[in-house]
């Protein structure tokens, strides 16, 4: 149900993150060449790269969860068959929503503050604003909450026998 709404967004975020990874490669190479050949590195590369990793992680988080890419150890639960899997899906969904909910709850205010106050990391010419990363952390986590809740509902329906256990819980 909510999948219809979230899926395009999730895929868009995946594409953006992938593009950032691709671009990082070029940024790093430009920095190395600039430093090695022209003795002038691309200023702020380390700051930009480290900021990007946070952004990449939380852009990718919704896809990781929605596509079933999150690592898990379901050997023991697997012994209980479809219901066992549905149970661990339910637990993952509820706890996952709670955990990422904490990130949203705790991160919103600092993200707003970072935007308003112009918080930055680094110094001098190398200042990188903090708000984009803080914002992506909150937004990505919020989307993950929705996805986890939807998965929990689905798993609950399986447990209650209102839906058949899907072959691929993905």
């Amino acid at each position: 149900m909510s999948d219809r709404l979230t899926t395009p967004v999730v895929h868009l975020l995946l594409a953006v993150a992938a593009l950032i990874i691709f671009a990082l490669g070029f940024l790093v190479v430009a920095d190395v060449i600039g430093r090695g050949v022209f003795n002038s590195p691309v200023k702020g590369t380390p700051e930009l790269v480290s900021m990007s990793i946070v952004i990449i992680c939380f852009l990718l988080a919704p896809y990781a969860v929605q596509s079933g890419g999150m690592l898990k150890a379901d050997v023991l639960v697997g012994a209980f068959g479809g219901r066992g899997r549905a149970f661990s899906e339910l637990a993952s969904g509820v706890l996952g929503a709670l955990f990422f909910g904490l990130i949203v709850w705790g991160g919103t205010e600092p993200a707003l503050r970072a935007f308003m106050a112009g918080e930055y990391e680094g110094e001098g010419a190398l200042r990188v604003p903090a708000w984009p990363a803080r914002l992506v952390v909150v937004a990505g986590a919020a989307l993950v909450v929705l996805i986890y809740l939807a998965r929990a509902v689905r798993a609950l329906r399986v447990l209650l026998g209102r839906a058949t256990p899907p072959d691929v819980v993905a």
Partner: peptide, 24 residues
């Protein structure tokens, strides 16, 4: 305290140059 710490770590934990090695 819990929410502050969790969200703050979400922002700080990966903000390190070295993690870019993984995707690259």
């Amino acid at each position: 305290v819990v929410r502050t710490f969790v969200s703050n770590t979400a922002y700080e934990a990966l903000r390190d140059y070295v993690f870019a090695v993984i995707p690259l």
